[in-house]
Write a protein that binds this DNA or RNA. Structure first.
Length: 202
DNA sequence: CAATAGATCATCT
DNA sequence: GATGATCTATTGC
C-alpha cells in the first residue's frame, strides 16, 4: 500500500523515530523488535524483514568478541548508533548497536522490503529484476539505500539515517533460524525474519 | 534447480 | 598472509 513515491510523505507523517531506549535492551530483543520497523535514509525507505543478533560474551561470530579495536569501538559505545563494516573487498553491512554503553551487542540488518524511493534504489541496483531482489541481503540493501562506511558511528535516533515505527502496527509473526554465512557459532538460533515475506534473503 | 568460482580489500595473526 | 556477518555469473545435472 506504500509502494509508490508519493507515499513517502505519508510514511513520515504517520510514523515516529525510535528513541534510544528502544536500543538499550538485550540484543536479541532489539533484533526481534526491529522486524516490521522502517529504515529511512535520505529519500529511500524499507521495512526491516530480516535481522541477526551478534552478542557479546562468548559469541565468537561477533566482531566484538576480540575486544575493542578501531573497528569494533562503536559496538561497545552507546546504543542507537550505526556500525557499518566492509566485507569481502566489495560490500558494506549495516548493524544497529544495542545494549547499554560499555556492553557489546549489535543487530545486522539482513533484508528490507522497499517502500519508498524505489526508483532510486533500482538505479543503484540495475541488476535487480524484481522488487524482492532490490534489498534482500545485507550487501544489497546498503547499495540500494546508499549506506556506506561514512555512516559508521552515526546516531540513528536523529538525522538522515533513522528507524521509524507505526504505532498501530501489530507485531509480525517471527521465524527463528541459525545465522547465515558464518563458521563460528554457526548453529546458534539468532537469525529472525518475518514469516512468509518475499524479501527475506536466500 | 544446485554447486562453485571470482571479484577484491580491511582487518587481524 | 589468510580470512571473511556477500553477491553474481556460470557451469553442470
Amino acid at each position: 500500500m506504500w509502494h509508490d513515491e508519493a507515499a513517502f510523505g505519508v510514511l513520515l507523517k504517520h510514523s515516529a523515530v525510535l528513541d534510544r531506549s528502544f536500543y538499550c535492551r538485550s540484543t536479541i530483543d532489539v533484533a526481534k523488535s526491529l522486524l516490521g520497523k522502517v529504515l529511512v535514509h535520505g529519500a529511500t525507505a524499507g521495512v526491516i524483514v530480516e535481522t541477526e543478533a551478534y552478542l557479546g560474551g562468548n559469541d565468537l561470530a561477533s566482531h566484538s568478541s576480540r575486544g575493542i579495536t578501531d573497528r569494533t569501538r562503536v559496538i561497545f559505545g552507546p546504543p542507537g548508533h550505526a556500525y557499518v563494516y566492509f566485507i569481502y573487498g566489495m560490500y558494506e553491512c549495516l548493524n544497529l548497536v544495542a545494549e547499554p554503553e560499555g556492553v557489546p551487542g549489535c543487530v545486522l540488518i539482513r533484508a528490507l522490503e522497499p517502500v519508498a524511493g524505489i526508483a532510486i534504489m533500482r538505479e543503484r541496483r540495475p541488476r535487480a529484476k524484481k522488487l524482492e531482489d532490490l534489498a534482500s541481503g545485507p550487501g544489497k540493501l546498503t547499495i540500494a539505500m546508499n549506506i556506506t562506511r561514512r555512516d559508521n558511528g552515526k546516531d540513528v535516533t536523529h538525522g538522515p539515517l533513522t528507524v521509524r515505527s507505526f504505532p498501530k502496527t501489530k507485531q509480525p509473526e517471527i521465524v527463528t533460524t541459525p545465522r547465515i554465512g558464518i563458521r563460528k557459532c554457526a548453529d546458534w538460533p539468532l537469525r529472525f525474519y518475518i514469516a512468509g515475506n518475499r524479501c527475506v534473503s536466500r
